[in-house]
Amino acid sequence: MGKYKESFTKGIVKENPVLRLVLGTCPTLAVSTTVIGGLGMGVAATFVLVCSNIVISLLRKLIPSMVRLPAYIVVIAGFTTIVQMLLKAFVPSIDQILGIYLPLIVVNCIILGRAEAYAGKHSVGLSALDGLGMGVGFTAALVLMSAIREFFGSGTLAGWPENGMFPAIAVFAAPAGGFFVFGLLIWATNKLSAKFDKEFTPKTSFDCSACPHAASCEKMTMGGGCDE
């Protein structure tokens, strides 16, 4: 039972994809201007993550390793499009907010990363829980970040109150505010982690360890490319 609990909970705090592993940065920065947008992106990505983890885990013995990555991408792209169509049909307002970032879930490195690092090697049940845990961690980080940006940037929380509680500090909602808040959040995460976890060492650079293309990154390290 322990390993099931572990595969679910690790994504939420210990290996939080956004704050600890620093993955999926594009959607994290882009849709975190409003809580509704952050929550919508989180839920949509979690759906794709869980479904693709289940399917890939089911197929893991059938897919030849030569075409592993293309096969994963096809499965992920399929679920991404399904989410896109469902949102367009039943929650058009969320589809409007997420716009281009909705189809771009397909290249969210958290999803391909989990497929490669976990679902391709573990049983269906574990993979589903892993996907759910990572998805919840991703969603929680997005909601936290968008709450901060919306509160300061528009003076509202999830659109309430309509005219804002105080004059907004527009830069928080601007792209620059995204980078800034993200930087501070990671700093806070490192501080808190160091306090509660004796063995914790903060990630110091944007290495490619969790990225599906880690192999080619190592080639780049020799050329002085990716962070060592």
């Binding site: 620093v22 995204g178 930087g183 501070l184 490192n190 501080k191 903060p202 650079s205 944007f206």
Partner: peptide
């Protein structure tokens, strides 16, 4: 505390601000 990733992101914020 800000060394590494946080300072890189804050630097990115400043570069982004210039494009604003």
């Amino acid at each position: 505390g800000l060394r590494g990733i946080p300072s890189t992101l804050i630097a990115a914020a400043l570069v982004s601000l210039s494009f604003f």
